[in-house]
């Protein structure tokens, strides 16, 4: 039976969405449009002068700004946490999906770090990474590494330190998504491969991995986007330091806007961040068919 809506019922639809549409317009759409405008101005919250339109000056300033270039470099290094975390997560998910007791308990154990408060997590890792007496470096020394890195305290290793924290926090998320995908893999396929005489690692390499490749791809894309937007763990552990060695793009934007109040310039940098996200999405869209073996 086909149901016909009358005019009054059509208006009802608008009323249902109206409050949310209003809020989203006010707190998302208009600010985004305003930020786009600010990108072309010299607005600074310090001088409180009205914004002057300066065209593309902020963008050419970004092109020449060494600090911005370094932040791009740190962001790029930080992105490697994503494949690293995925590589650790797949074996965990694979084993959890295999014959294991206490599956639910185990799943929760791996997932817990993901839902934790970033600042609390940052605190703990700051102490674990303590260069002289911290448990991580003591363990490394015990294992025979005489000069372990100073982690968060040194400009050369700090980006890897925050990267490790981020990768650790993301494992739980990756495992959950992999588990969902692995449950869809028919066990007959694995058995067939086993019967055909394939070794277990051959089965993983030629059956399981290709079957979950769309998931791997999804985790890479969402992981990259998440890593680019990531802010809390870095800000709480190092605040972008020492020096500017962990000032990734999101921290660069925050510092420019709320420490130097250079808001037009910060807006331009935030659109640069958006451009990188868009590029990843375009690559995702183009690459989906080529890289996913199904």
């Amino acid at each position: 039976m086909k149901f016909r809506f009358n005019t009054r019922q059509k208006l009802v639809g608008y009323m249902f969405v109206a409050p949310n549409v209003l809020g989203v317009t006010l707190f998302f759409l208009l600010p985004a449009l305003y930020s786009f405008y600010l990108m072309f101005t010299d607005y600074s919250f310090l001088t409180k002068q009205s914004a002057n339109f300066i065209g593309l000056e902020n963008i050419s300033r970004l092109m020449e700004d060494e600090a911005f270039h370094r932040s791009l470099k740190y962001t790029f290094i930080f992105l490697f946490t994503v494949p690293a975390s995925i590589m650790v997560s797949f074996p965990i998910a694979f084993l959890l999906n295999a014959h294991v007791r206490m599956k639910k308990l185990l799943r929760s154990m791996y997932f817990l770090p993901y839902v934790m408060n970033g600042v609390a997590v940052a605190f703990v890792w700051m102490l674990l990474f303590e260069p002289n007496n911290g448990p991580i470096n003591e363990t490394l020394r015990m294992l025979g590494i005489a000069n372990p890195p100073s982690w968060l305290a040194s400009t050369t290793s700090s980006i890897y330190g925050v990267g490790i924290i981020h990768a650790w926090a993301m494992i739980g998320f990756n495992v959950i998504i992999y588990l969902a995908a692995l449950q869809e893999v028919p066990s007959e396929l694995m058995e067939a491969s086993h019967i055909d005489g394939a070794k277990w690692w051959q089965t993983i390499r030629h059956v399981t991995l290709p079957l979950v490749s769309p998931t791997t791809f999804l985790l890479l894309v969402t992981g990259f986007i998440g890593a680019i937007k990531s802010f809390g763990i870095i800000q709480a552990t190092t605040g972008g330091g020492p020096g500017d060695s962990t000032t990734v793009l999101s921290i660069f934007i925050y510092k420019t806007a709320f420490r130097y109040y250079d808001m037009g310039y910060a807006s331009a940098a935030s659109w640069a961040l958006f451009t990188i996200i868009l590029l990843i999405m375009v690559m995702n869209w183009l690459g989906q068919k080529r890289w996913v073996h199904y």
Binding site: P31, A32, L38, S267, S270, M281
Partner: peptide, 24 residues
């Protein structure tokens, strides 16, 4: 169309919104 717009707005990173929200 409205729902499609919603999905597009979801892609806007929070970093873009901080400065204009601060001013607003």
């Amino acid at each position: 169309i409205m729902f499609f717009l919603y999905l597009s707005i979801m892609m806007i990173p929070p970093q873009i919104l901080f400065v204009p929200k601060f001013m607003m």
